[in-house]
Design a protein around this nucleic acid. Sequence first.
DNA 1: CAAATAGTGTCTGTTAGACACTATATG
DNA 2: CATATAGTGTCTAACAGACACTATTTG
Lengths: 242, 242
Amino acid sequence: MTQYADEASFLANYNRREFDAPLLTVDPVLFTYHQAQLKVLLVERSAYPERGLWGLPGGFVQIDTDISLEDTARRKLQEKTGIIPPYLEQLYTFGSNQRDKRGWAVTVAYTALMAYQECASHIESVSDVQWQPLDQLNKLTLAFDHQQIIEFARERLRQKALYSIVPAYALPEKFTLPELQQLHEVLLGKPLQKKSFRRRIEEAELLIDTGEKRSDGSGRPAVLYRMKEGAGGYTFVRNLEE
Amino acid sequence: MTQYADEASFLANYNRREFDAPLLTVDPVLFTYHQAQLKVLLVERSAYPERGLWGLPGGFVQIDTDISLEDTARRKLQEKTGIIPPYLEQLYTFGSNQRDKRGWAVTVAYTALMAYQECASHIESVSDVQWQPLDQLNKLTLAFDHQQIIEFARERLRQKALYSIVPAYALPEKFTLPELQQLHEVLLGKPLQKKSFRRRIEEAELLIDTGEKRSDGSGRPAVLYRMKEGAGGYTFVRNLEE
DNA sequence: CAAATAGTGTCTGTTAGACACTATATG
DNA sequence: CATATAGTGTCTAACAGACACTATTTG
């Protein structure tokens, strides 16, 4: 191993391609909620490997333009949806010598949430991007280990539904409490007590009453709320029942 | 961009050094509890960059021997402590163009816990590995952003003290409830109600009474317990008060 | 016995579950 | 009015906080 007199000369001679390193990608899992279903954003791969398969809207870090991993995630999401989603959080980093045919590969996965309508027009204009309902995911063969990554992200989001209102970021800016409760019920796979659900959200003062209401055509109209600043970061001290 | 007829010819021509990619390392944050203090394992860097500074016991993925990121973390910990710690969990992945003088760099950080005594002899035999008390960390200048990574890991461990007994992995195999409570109190920075602390652990049946007791020289001896299989994965539905 | 530490009994307070009730919309 | 959906009142159950009490050790 070469010895250097000081750090400056070490850095001057440093060559980042000297060693074989794992491939490094960033893969955002973008969820939304539409027509009583959780959906995930998939992209059809146009290049090898796994060409023709659907997968997550990820890609390589561009070291000359991205300044952080989150930056890369935001860039890829904007490329595919036209929008930067209101919720983006690092999920987990998957890395092994098995998950990519090219060899050792690492992906930093993110969970993102946004309203379905926010990018509906953008997505309808292209054929290689689609919202896939989560309960029909088995019918598709996804690229790499993206199926497992999506399941991992869904499980984490399910956990969050027990102690936060993070799922609300998958709804439009203005939404009703029954809508939010339905979303939580889909995530948890079981009905929730209306009273319990509302009470904890009201007592924690997480939402702002917009003064508006919305009717579904029949029945009493529901109040439209907006999330308060930072409401996604709030965690209840006690979980809902599993 | 070159076009390939099929995936096989794409893979045959694939060169993983073709593009500049971020550096990728794995950095375990290994905590223990000794003499009423939380301590973290640090290593003195023998090579550039940041030579001479203390930092986390991490390193590059060895793509020919490691089969997963967790593998890399385990290997580095075994190299420095002689032991594979009983608790190892991925923490967070830090990546930006600012955190390493060599340029864009990513590190997958892990939290690990083990008993102080398990590797005391191994560590005492070398001069470049040490347990550093967390409340004296400010006095040291650490390599890269390792100071922030340690703080991040400590904060996550603090959270876990509110809803799990994961911190118990920082104790010897057999430990007493007062010991575990003290550790939680150090993590949370505040005293806990003895009764509340014991009650929830007993009701969840997380520990096994070894039948043995240990006296500190004065006062009633405390019962020695062992963790049940999977006790670290248990989460209480209700948190302790912050 | 006193001092020290481990461990328990039991009351209170908070918050989720259950479920019946009222409120407000449409046709 | 009937029906549908939104939203409330209120009792119960579970579980953490508070704190005084008992238990077991050493000297």
